[in-house]
Amino acid sequence: MNELDFIWNALEAVRKSGPLILSVTNYVAANLNANALLAVGASPIMSHQVAEIEDLVTISSAVVVNMGIPADTLPEALYLAGQCANTMGKPLIFDPVGAGASSYRNKVCNKLLTTSSPDIIRGNASEIMALAGQSRATKGVDSLHGTTEASSSAIELAKQYNCTVCVSGAVDLITDGNRSLFVGNGHSMMPRITGLGCTATALAGAFAAVVKDKVDALTSCMAILGIAGEIAAESSNGPGSLQIGIVDKLFNISREEIEMKINLSM
């Protein structure tokens, strides 16, 4: 199977099975996350309500926990969702938004990682480095580091938590601590869309729900999102129209477009 086959097959699997993805996420990114999931063929459901988390995990194909804005009931919902996903054998995807920005966010991250075991951790370089304890430098939820700087942190995290880690950036790194792939797709305007990183994490949930190999799942997810961004940017006037264009392209992206644009290396 070549690189195109596993990426296209992963997307086709999402489109055919329509997995239900529970996202315990932040309200800044919720709308875009839900629309992106629908566009690739998955179904979103979202909640911060602790009382219903167990029921929602039960009916979901994968669980995404996004630290986002860790206020009110969100942290407790994150912890419970993680524990339930592990107990029920559902893929668990963790996005440590803003890790390193405050001691409180660091505490939330640490508690989640000690009370549950994510299958996937996806963040920007600064977040991944902060999670590994290698840096406290951050710019809110934005990255001050590049993928290359975070590669050792990503590998360390993958081995420590027996999971697959994605460092997103101009080039995305996906590693399980032994096998590493790099996705060079995307567009420089994409970081100007708020919540697009969170959207990558939500999409990772959809792909992880249908692809057993989590490196393949994450690579497929990041490649398709990056290619959608590249194609949408060709007819976009700015971040607003780019956001709409990305959702549209996630809906109608073709095998031929993936074959023409894919930029994948080891």
Score class of each variant (00 low, 15 high):
E3S: 13
W8L: 02
N9F: 00
N9H: 10
V14N: 09
R15A: 12
R15G: 06
G18V: 00
L20N: 10
S23C: 15
V24R: 08
L32K: 09
A34W: 03
G41Y: 10
A42W: 11
S43D: 01
S47F: 06
Q49A: 15
V50S: 08
V50A: 08
E54T: 15
I59Q: 13
A62R: 08
G68I: 07
P70D: 05
D72M: 11
L74C: 04
P75R: 04
Y79R: 12
L80N: 08
L80G: 05
L80W: 07
A81E: 04
A85I: 08
N86A: 10
N86C: 12
M88I: 02
P91W: 07
L92K: 06
L92D: 10
F94H: 07
G98H: 07
G100R: 07
S102R: 13
N106Q: 14
K107C: 02
K107I: 12
V108G: 03
N110G: 14
K111M: 12
K111F: 00
L112H: 00
T114Q: 15
S116P: 02
I121K: 07
R122M: 04
L131C: 07
A132T: 02
G133L: 10
G133A: 10
A137H: 12
G140S: 06
H145D: 05
T147F: 03
T147Y: 01
S151Y: 06
S151E: 15
S152R: 08
K159N: 14
K159W: 01
Q160V: 02
C163Y: 05
C163Q: 01
T164H: 01
V165T: 07
V165N: 04
A170C: 01
A170T: 11
V171P: 00
D172Y: 01
L173T: 03
L173A: 05
T175C: 07
G177S: 09
N178Q: 14
R179Q: 12
L181R: 12
F182E: 11
F182D: 00
V183K: 04
S188W: 02
M190Q: 12
I193H: 06
L196M: 15
L196A: 01
G197H: 06
C198N: 11
A202I: 03
A202F: 02
G205T: 01
G205H: 04
A208I: 06
A209R: 03
V210G: 06
V211P: 04
D213Q: 02
D216V: 13
T219L: 02
T219D: 05
C221A: 14
A223E: 10
I224D: 03
I224V: 15
I227N: 06
I227L: 10
G229R: 05
G229T: 06
A232E: 11
A232R: 12
N237C: 05
P239I: 08
S241T: 15
L242V: 11
V247Y: 09
I253N: 09
E256W: 00
E257Y: 07
I258E: 00
K261E: 11
N263I: 09
N263R: 13
L264N: 07
L264M: 10
